[in-house]
Design a binder for these strands. Structure first.
Lengths: 215, 215
DNA sequence: GCGGAACCGTACCGTACGGTACGCCTGCGG
DNA sequence: CCGCAGGCGTACCGTACGGTACGGTTCCGC
């Protein structure tokens, strides 16, 4: 079946959401060793109910990822009056959101789960994570970039390339290192430098794509 | 036990290397669903031998990743006479190697395996991959960056930051999308653009860190 | 009050897979 | 020629886990 990308509030009943919360907690705690029995016990429900609601283990996993991923909300930027200052602050906000998201325990777990899943020729989880992560950022950022170009604040031939450059400047090697469990890169460690990194990445992006002296 | 980071040629006998090759092939083919029985059958050896040589499944996995990761070789750059031209070409070579590596089937598989492993509170595989991937690049690149700074070709306060910026400009969202199984980003698709991306990333890096008009 | 739907808890089944044991063959040193 | 070490193939064991079945309880509509 084609998975719905969007999840509305009413997709899951409160009880079901409690189950999904339990599943997510277990996922974060125990890695991908998520068993149906454990979820049932944690959520105080029967396995039969799990299978009735979610079909099978994959369905539960999918629902969990989908439900959690949909909770990530992007800030809306007013692009009607873009000034250099507003643009810079918007970019910084995007960078901050992106960084704080990817270093979060939940994001790491979800990405790991989806990648593990993708290793078994199943890309549904990967698509959900992509759609709610990088692609969501892209959808929100590109209009702003294009508005900024129209306002002569930025210069680029392709907004796609500009977006991907911004992504690279912000994320760098942080995400892959966290996913691989690099001990030299704890969340708190990265967290302390977020503000500096946000400013640095934004400055670099503006240096590359700013129309003039936007530094 | 502390895992040796370096693997010499003689660490494994040819027969053992054949077994590891079989394991790697299966890993690439079947994702993380690597079973001891499958490896034994593919390598035409008995399971008993596998356990004798590698201890347990984790040992086999570790040996496979370790052995394969060690095969990645970095180019050596002569940093005695660095000119702007040589620097640019060196950077481009690094970018090219990095990109061609991470889009390769084997790299994707190894990273996925290590990440899956990291989701179970085991970071040995992750460390091996990190050490032979990003960290290896860093070890080779940083001296060049610093030599270029000494030669007044580059300007930066921290070679660490410069390296990580370069990494971000080159990799961008390619690796995470491939790991997540993004269908809109096939290897061939990326491969076709490698040269353009290499040049673009290098130009951007030089624009940010070049001492003067190194564009 | 009554029937039934939903659901909990638990017991159960089948299978897949990690790990072990054993019988057999081959090659080699003495 | 003998014995034995190394290794192949296979059968086997135990367990963990996905998935199912079923009895008991609660709650809701009538």
């Amino acid at each position: 079946m084609a998975l719905p990308i969007k999840i509305s509030e009413e997709t899951f009943t409160p009880r079901q959401q409690a189950v999904l919360t339990a599943a997510l907690d277990l996922l974060v705690e125990n890695g991908d060793g998520l068993t149906m029995t454990a979820v049932a016990r944690r959520a105080s429900c029967s396995k039969e109910t799990l299978y009735k609601w979610f079909g099978d283990r994959d369905g539960l996993l999918t629902a969990t990822v989908q439900w959690q991923a949909a909770k990530v909300r992007m800030p809306t930027v007013d692009r009607s009056h873009l000034s250099a200052k507003v643009l810079r602050e918007s970019l910084q906000q995007f960078a901050r959101d992106l960084l704080t998201t990817i270093i979060g325990e939940v994001s790491i777990t979800l990405n790991r789960t989806a990648i593990t899943h993708a290793a078994q020729e199943k890309d549904s989880l990967g698509n959900i994570v992509l759609e709610n992560g990088p692609m969501a950022i892209r959808r929100r950022l590109k209009p702003i970039l294009e508005a900024a170009r129209d306002a002569r604040l930025l210069r680029f031939p392709s907004s796609e390339d500009a977006y991907r450059c911004f992504f690279g400047l912000v994320v760098r090697d942080v995400q892959i290192r966290l996913l691989l469990g690099d001990k030299g890169l704890t969340q708190s460690n990265v967290e302390a430098n977020i503000e500096a990194d946000v400013v640095a990445a934004t400055d670099q992006f503006l240096a590359l794509y700013g129309a003039k002296a936007n530094l």
